[in-house]
Amino acid sequence: MDLENQKRVLGFAEQYGPENVVVLLGAAEGEASGLAAETVTAGDPTFSGPLTGVSLGLTVFHVCEPQVKEEFDQAVYEEQVGMMEMVLDVDDIVSEMTSIRDEFCKYLG
């Protein structure tokens, strides 16, 4: 994850409290989604950004995951995400995201 984005995520977590922050991803691949999710939960796996060694454990979802889709007005979702949903390997993304969340998320019941 971009170093500047890591800094912003860290800043929001400090400002609002990590339990009040949800990170919503739009990455195009399962692997890239997993890496970003790992960065905001376990810490930066590339050891280069501000989240190196910082395990925020934030709640993190990809916009194509069913739990997130349910939260949207379906017309808006179709307009904004519908095409990408057709293009992405949603199953792969869901599987990556679920495994990272199960292991590192601190704020899901």
């Binding site: 195009a28 691949e29 890239a32 890496l35 990408m84 293009v87």
Partner: peptide, 16 residues
């Protein structure tokens, strides 16, 4: 982890 970028573009054009 950025995938096949041209392919991703073509998939989007095809989906549209």
């Amino acid at each position: 982890g950025a995938g096949d970028v041209p392919q991703a573009n073509y998939k989007m054009i095809a989906a549209l």
